[in-house]
């Protein structure tokens, strides 16, 4: 089992390195960082522009792309992620933003995956009963909403809710009320929680809906199966048969989706961060594309790669735990 996991992890690591490289190469090939200086008034001389670009390892006119890529990898190996267009260190900015996105994503992943599996299994067990109809309707509605639509509607709801109740319970901008408040005090945690509610909902509702649909479909396939009837026939109660034999098998195909949902979640987080003005990796990504900032975009690529790696590990562990066949 450990060998299996290790093999899968090496595979993931390899993929993730390629993914991060593809991100860098695409950005380096497509972006034109010199536009940032060409658009200035008065326009700086080309020698100044070349010097600025060279400092950022982004001079596409003088340095071939493979040399720039080699420089970037070399820098990474020495813990140097380069300089942003604005002149700040990429590593410094990433260090600040990575925590914001991780807090948002960690909670959303847990809520999204567990919620989705539970809703899906229960919906299949109670097919065409009230719970199934309500959850089907709700997930169809959520499916029909892009994250930004959901986020905008949540904001409108929060405004209405706060006005109606005369409170400020639901916050819909920023991560904390006061950026300088002390960490880890009780009021800080409560404040953070209040700011988390809506963004977490906006990121995770989509994956609850997504998983519950797949989970319901696989569970329904299993519900009519022979081995479940056998389980009932040998005297297990309906619930025991369904949850010990049915759900366990039905979760396996969905568990592979869990890992790649990380990518989907991050996309959701990009919209949520921009709309709720959280200064995380997603917001950074959008502004970096606008600035043709190759180094920052590559840093976001590295971040999503790490996300996939972690999520992949979790999903493999789930599969190994549930499916005895891969343990051989």
């Amino acid at each position: 089992m450990a060998a299996y996991l290790l093999r899968r992890m090496i595979n993931y690591l390899f993929l993730v390195i390629i993914a991060a490289s593809v991100t860098y190469l695409l950005a380096a090939w497509i972006f034109h960082p010199e536009n940032n200086w060409l658009a200035r008034h008065p326009q700086p001389s080309w020698s100044v522009i070349h010097a600025e670009l060279k400092a950022r390892n982004e001079d596409e006119t003088l340095t071939p792309i493979w040399t720039r890529y080699a420089n970037w990898v070399n820098g990474l190996l020495h813990g140097n992620m380069g300089i942003e267009i604005g002149g700040n260190s990429v590593a410094q900015d990433m260090g600040r933003r990575i925590g914001v996105s991780t807090r948002l994503l960690a909670l959303s992943t847990v809520i999204g995956s567990i919620g989705g599996v539970v809703v899906g299994v229960w919906g299949a067990v109670r097919q065409y009963k009230l719970f199934d109809r309500v959850s089907t309707g709700a997930s169809l509605l959520i499916f029909a909403m892009p994250v930004f639509t959901l986020a905008i509607l949540l904001q409108m709801f929060a405004t209405w809710f706060n006005n109606a109740t005369g409170t400020h319970f639901l916050y819909y901008v920023n991560e904390v009320s006061n950026p300088n408040q002390p960490f880890w005090t009780w009021s800080d945690l409560v404040d953070r929680f209040e700011h988390l509610i809506l963004p977490t909902l906006s990121v995770s509702l989509g994956s609850v809906a997504y998983f519950s649909r797949y989970q319901r479909a696989t569970m329904l396939d299993i519900m009519g199966s022979d081995f479940l009837r056998t389980a009932r026939a040998k005297g297990l109660t309906k619930n025991r048969a369904i949850f010990k034999h049915g759900a366990r098998t039905a979760i396996i195909p969905v568990a592979t989706l869990l890992s790649y949902n990380a990518v989907l979640l991050f996309t959701g987080a990009v919209f949520t961060e921009v709309i709720f003005t959280w200064h995380g990796m997603g917001e950074w990504f959008i502004s970096s594309i606008g600035q043709n900032d190759v180094n920052s975009v590559a840093a976001v690529g590295i971040f999503t790669s790490i996300l996939v790696l972690v999520a992949g590990l979790i999903s493999e562990v789930i599969t190994v735990t549930l499916d005895p066949r891969v343990r051989v």
Partner: peptide
């Protein structure tokens, strides 16, 4: 592991 939205955004220019 290549996020669709990210890749297409990078390709957008």
């Amino acid at each position: 592991v290549l996020p669709s939205f990210l890749m297409l955004s990078i390709l957008s220019p």
